Simulated assay, not measured.
Amino acid sequence: MSSRNNLANFGSLKGKRVFVTGGGSGIGEAIVSAFAEQGAKVAFIDIAAAASLALCEKLKAEGHEPAVFRECDIRDIAALQDTMKMLAKEIGDFDVLVNNAANDQRHKLEDVTVEYWNDRIAINQRPMFFTCQAVADGMKNKGGGSIINIGSTSWHISGGGYPVYTTTKAAVSGLTRGLARDLGPYNIRVNTVTPGWVMTERQLQLWVDEKGEKLIDENQCLPGRVQPGHVARMVLFLAADDSAMCTAQEFIVDGGWV
C-alpha cells in the first residue's frame, strides 16, 4: 500500500465523531487509526483490552486526536447500547458508525448446535442491527450520518467450512439495503464494505498457509495481498462527504476475486 503521505485527506472527516466495533486489532485497528489520522474523534469497543489500550497509546504518541476505548462484549446488547450512550455523552452524537466486529471461527455443519448457532448470530449479526438503532436518533438530530457495515466475500465465493458465518455475512447486505431505505430521508447513508482475504495477524497465524497463498494467487486479479489499510481507506471514503450520494451499496475490496 502507498505511503499514507500520498493518500487522500478527507477534510470533511476532521472533527467527526466515529464509533467502531472491534477496533482493537486487525481491520478494526486499521479503521480506528485511519480515522484518527484524519482528525476524527474515534470511540471504539473490543473485548481485547490490552491491544486496544496499546492502540490508544500509539495514536496519542503519534500526535493524533486521542481515541476513546471501552471494553464491551457485543453479545450483551444492553451493555453495548449503554456503552454507546455513555460514549455519545462523552464525545458527542456519532456522525459515523462502523460495524466491524466479527468472528470467522471455522465449524462443520454436523457440529452446529442451537447454542453455537445462537452464539455466532450474537457475535456476527445481531449487534449490527442494535448499533444502528442506537445511533439513529443522534444522526437524525445532526441532520445526517454514515453507517458502514463490514461484510465478507466468503458467501460470494461459496466459501465452505463456516456455514453460520457465511449466513450472517450474507445478511449484512439485507440489513444495509433495508436501513438505507428507512434512514435515507434523514440523510443517513448506509453501505457495506466487503473485504476479501485480508492479511490480518489472525489470518496469517491461522489460515494463510502455502495452500492459501496459492489460492490467493490463482483467484485475485491483482498481485499482492489485501491489507487492513486497504479496507480502511474505503471506509474513510464512505464516511466522508465525498460519497454523499452513495447508499444501499456494497463496495468490495478483494483484489478482484469476486
Rank of each mutant, 00 (worst) to 15 (best):
R75P: 11
G92D: 02
L87N: 08
A67F: 09
N99W: 02
D73L: 05
Q105E: 05
N99Q: 10
F69C: 15
R75W: 09
D73V: 11
D82Y: 00
A88D: 15
E71R: 14
Q81V: 09
N99A: 05
R106L: 08
D95E: 12
F94E: 06
I77E: 02
L87E: 10
N99I: 02
D95I: 07
A88K: 14
I74E: 07
R106E: 15
A88Y: 12
G92H: 04
D73C: 08
R70V: 14
K85S: 15
R106P: 11
D76V: 13
L97W: 06
A67T: 12
K89A: 00
L97H: 05
R70K: 10
I77P: 13
R106G: 07
G92R: 09
M84Y: 05
A78V: 11
D82C: 02
R106K: 09
D93G: 12
Q105N: 04
D104Y: 02
D95P: 15
A101C: 13
A101M: 10
Q105R: 10
Q81A: 02
N99F: 07
E90Q: 15
Q81M: 08
T83A: 04
A101S: 14
E90I: 08
K89I: 00
Q81Y: 07
N100H: 09
G92N: 04
G92F: 03
L97N: 07
N100D: 08
V68P: 13
V96Y: 08
R70C: 11
A78G: 07
E71H: 09
I91V: 15
F94M: 13
R106D: 11
V68F: 10
E71S: 14
A79N: 08
L87A: 08
V98K: 01
N103H: 01
N99K: 05
D93V: 08
M86Y: 05
G92C: 02
D73P: 14
F69A: 07
D76C: 11
T83Q: 09
A88C: 15
L87P: 11
N100K: 06
V98A: 00
M84K: 04
D93Q: 15
A101T: 10
A88L: 12
A88F: 13
R106F: 03
D82M: 01
D82N: 05
T83Y: 06
N103P: 06
T83E: 04
I91E: 11
N103T: 01
D76M: 11
A101R: 09
D93R: 14
I77Q: 04
T83C: 12
M86R: 02
M84H: 08
R70A: 14
R75S: 13
D95S: 12
M86P: 13
E71C: 07
K89Y: 01
R70D: 13
I91N: 11
L80R: 00
F94H: 14
D82S: 09
L97G: 04
Q105H: 01
D104R: 01
E90R: 09
F69P: 14
T83N: 11
N99D: 10
M84S: 06
N103D: 04
A67N: 05
I74C: 11
Q105A: 02
D73I: 04
C72D: 00
L80H: 00
I77K: 02
D82R: 03
